[in-house]
Amino acid sequence: MDMGNREKYRGEKKRITVLGSTGSIGTQTLDVIRREPERFEVAALTCGRNVTLLAEQIREFHPSLVCCARKEDADRLAGEFPGIRVVWGEEGLIEAAEADCDLLENSLMGMRGLVPTWHSILAGHDLALANKETLVTGGHIIMDGVNEHGVRLLPVDSEHSAIFQCLQGNEGKPVRRILLTASGGPFRGWTREKLEKVTPEMALRHPNWSMGRKITIDSATMMNKGLEMIEAKWLFGVDIRDIQVLVHPQSILHSAVEFRDTSVIGQMGVPDMRIPISVALGYPDRLEACTEGLDFFGKHSTMTFEQPDRDVFKCLRLAEEASLRGGSYPVVMNAANEVLVQAFLDHRISFTDIMDDNEEVLVHHVSTGEPDLEDIVRIDRETREMVARTYLPKEV
């Protein structure tokens, strides 16, 4: 991954746009910015419907532009903050992605992050990517755009940040495999029968990480790790068959790279998303610590590793298969998964239905070849409609 001119920001204050500033990653990003006022300023912020929190962020960080989902919320914010440009909807989100900044962090949830990512690349913005679905559905388009427009793409996911850090100083050296770690989620070691009784409340209790609701459910099904495998394939230019998932319950080793000579370089740290966020925001520098360090003689003294159970947690296998088949398979898988996860959170389907229905959707899908951006948006929409019509119980 070409990071371009390493001295680009040295000695300057970076203007940061945060797409999804009221979500889990967005609020933690603002925590990092808050600690470094001499280094960062906020250019633009976007949210969905949490305009109460967005208004608090506006008062603290004074962005030039903000975006929300609904016009009525935008009108209210415009009245409260007359000196700030307020936009709304999908067109407003694109305007925010194109607005002047030095670094855009995309922490939007799900497929919604793809089109803004593309527009930020066209605008020449360096990108801190926390939206894995961008690369899962449109990796071939995004990576071509990154290379063509000469922007930096800095990963924010803890695992991909770890891999990125392991590769620093080793660019061009042959990689034997990527070791992608997974906590195993709250149901590590459970049987299929036990999983059938899982409730949303149980699935949302992740043992290590504080994350948004959708990604927490994906972690519980291990779909999140499958999506991360596809993301790593695109970010680091490796065959997905050369990515090995290690279940590592302690979440101390965040991922590693094994080189041709079998040397393994890994990145360790406490499980706190502010660390990979600070790596992306501060690059090429490292920021002051925002959390405690590892306690090698106390609570962080043990690390264990296990094979993932691809039979019980078959979403991991489904993601690998979708990536290997290529074409529109990853788009369809991602769209189906987003609909099914939300249905589970709404108590409309069971936990195991997420995995079973994802498999059924992929079994019956016929790929349309390698899609362009318009194709991806269309296939995503059609898949969501089909899944809602075919796999979800009718609402009374």
Rank of each mutant, 00 (worst) to 15 (best):
P284D: 09
P308S: 10
N131C: 08
G293F: 13
T216W: 11
H149D: 00
S255D: 09
M109Q: 10
E98M: 10
T216G: 06
F313Q: 13
C47E: 14
I141T: 09
S323T: 06
T134W: 01
R317T: 08
V42Q: 06
V247S: 03
G20C: 04
N334A: 04
M229S: 03
I142W: 04
P155E: 00
T368S: 11
Y9W: 15
S21H: 03
L180F: 11
I94Q: 08
A203H: 12
F40P: 07
S120A: 15
F313V: 12
L253R: 03
T134G: 04
K14W: 11
L345T: 01
T27F: 12
D218V: 06
S158E: 07
N334D: 01
T302I: 15
L318D: 05
F236N: 08
S367N: 02
D102Y: 10
L30Y: 13
D357P: 00
L281E: 06
P37C: 11
K173N: 14
S161M: 07
G266F: 12
A256R: 06
D311H: 09
C47I: 03
E7I: 04
D31H: 14
E56D: 15
E41P: 00
I33P: 13
I141M: 05
V279K: 15
E41N: 07
S161R: 09
R176E: 12
I141E: 07
A44E: 03
I243Y: 15
E320F: 14
L108P: 00
R317W: 02
E90A: 10
T117L: 07
G185C: 05
A289Y: 10
V87I: 03
I252Q: 13
S161P: 00
I178R: 06
E105M: 15
G298P: 05
V396R: 15
N358H: 03
K233V: 14
E72P: 09
V32W: 13
P276I: 01
P249H: 04
T302H: 14
K194Q: 15
L324C: 12
G185H: 07
A69V: 03
D272H: 11
E148Q: 15
G138H: 02
A335P: 00
A203I: 07
S24A: 14
E80V: 12
P284Y: 05
A289H: 14
G237E: 10
I141R: 11
M229Y: 01
P82S: 12
F236R: 08
